[in-house]
Nucleic acid binder design. Sequence first.
DNA 1: GCCAACGTTGGC
DNA 2: GCCAACGTTGGC
Length: 152
Amino acid sequence: MARAYWLIKSEPYKYAWSELVADGSTFWDGVRNYEARNNLRAMKLGDLCLYYHSNKGKEVVGVARVCAESYPDPTTEDDRWSVVDVEPVVAVAEPVTLAAIKADPALAEMALVRRSRLSVVPVDRVEFQQILSMGKTKLPRAAMAKKRGGGK
DNA sequence: GCCAACGTTGGC
DNA sequence: GCCAACGTTGGC
């Protein structure tokens, strides 16, 4: 099964990329939208996520990896909501702004642009690679491996 | 089951 | 800080 790609948004003053790096990993809580939640639930171990700073910055600043698949959101009694765990993989060398994404015809149709209010959106492989390339960023070898443990 | 009111998100 | 987009809620 091919790896999937996603984009997850956080307001940097709420939970910034640098905090994820400092924490080592975190559970991705606070999603209260069914479609976003369904995207969380579709995430598989080893999927890669573009980490986007919304509101302030409006740019892709890092790549994170799903290190635990979805489970009930521990911050609420409401069993409708789920979280996943993510860990940082690599910072984007040159953050890719929303303006740059919109200006690129290959990216203008991204769910990020079309569904701007959705906080967890799918990204296709081509879009993912294009953003990394715009960000002058290469994935470390370890993240290229399919999954930890590497089974078929 | 429709739809108006309301709340939230996020770009500008 | 404003406002557009849009998801959710609740009255009927």
